[in-house]
C-alpha cells in the first residue's frame, strides 16, 4: 500500500506520515501541491491519496477533480485533510467524489477511523 501525502506545509506532511506509520502504512511519498502531486499519481503505483485543500499552485479540490476525471485514477481513494469547513466546500468535495473528509486540527483516532471506513467501503464493493 503506497500512499501519497499532499500538503504545502512540510510539518503537516511529517505529522501525517508519522500517524500513517503508526497505523502500519510505511510506504508514503510526499508532494507539496496538486501540480507536483499529479505527475506522481499519473506515473502509477499510488494506492491512496491524502490531500490538503488550501495550497498554492493547484488546490486539493482541483486535484480531486483531476483525479476523478482521469480514467486510470478515477477509482483512487482520496482522503481530504483540511481546515476548510464551509458547508459549500464540503458539499463540493462530496460531489467531486471525495472518499473521506478530515477537519484540521485532527486526532490520530479520527484519521484512523476515516481510513478504516474508506477501506471497508472498498472491501464491500
Amino acid at each position: 500500500m503506497k500512499i501519497l501525502v499532499v500538503d504545502d506545509f512540510s510539518t503537516m506532511r511529517r505529522i501525517i506520515k508519522n500517524l500513517l506509520r503508526d497505523l502500519g502504512f510505511n510506504n508514503t511519498v510526499e508532494a507539496d501541491d496538486g501540480l507536483t502531486a499529479l505527475p506522481i499519481l499519473q506515473a502509477g503505483g499510488i494506492d491512496f491519496l491524502v490531500t490538503d485543500w488550501n495550497m498554492p499552485g493547484m488546490q486539493g479540490i482541483d486535484l480531486l477533480k483531476a483525479v476523478r476525471a482521469d480514467e486510470k485514477l478515477a477509482k483512487l481513494p482520496v482522503l481530504m485533510v483540511t481546515a476548510e469547513t464551509k458547508r459549500e466546500q464540503i458539499m463540493t468535495a462530496a460531489q467531486a467524489g471525495v472518499s473521506g473528509y478530515v477537519v484540521k486540527p485532527f486526532t490520530a483516532a479520527t484519521l484512523k477511523e476515516k481510513i478504516d471506513k474508506i477501506f471497508e467501503r472498498i472491501d464491500a464493493q
Binding site: 485543500w53 488550501n54 488546490q59 479540490i61 481546515a83 476548510e84 469547513t85 464551509k86 458547508r87 459549500e88 466546500q89 464540503i90 463540493t92 473528509y101 478530515v102 477537519v103 484540521k104 485532527f106 479520527t110
Partner: peptide, 25 residues
C-alpha cells in the same frame, strides 16, 4: 466564490455557514 479556500475559520460559532468540528462535517 463560495468554495474559495480560506484556511481555519476563526469565529466559526457565529457563522451558520461554517461547520465547527469533525462531528458536524
Amino acid at each position: 466564490d463560495p468554495i474559495k479556500a480560506e484556511g481555519p475559520q476563526i469565529n466559526a460559532e457565529n457563522n451558520d455557514n461554517v461547520l465547527n468540528n469533525q462531528d458536524e462535517v
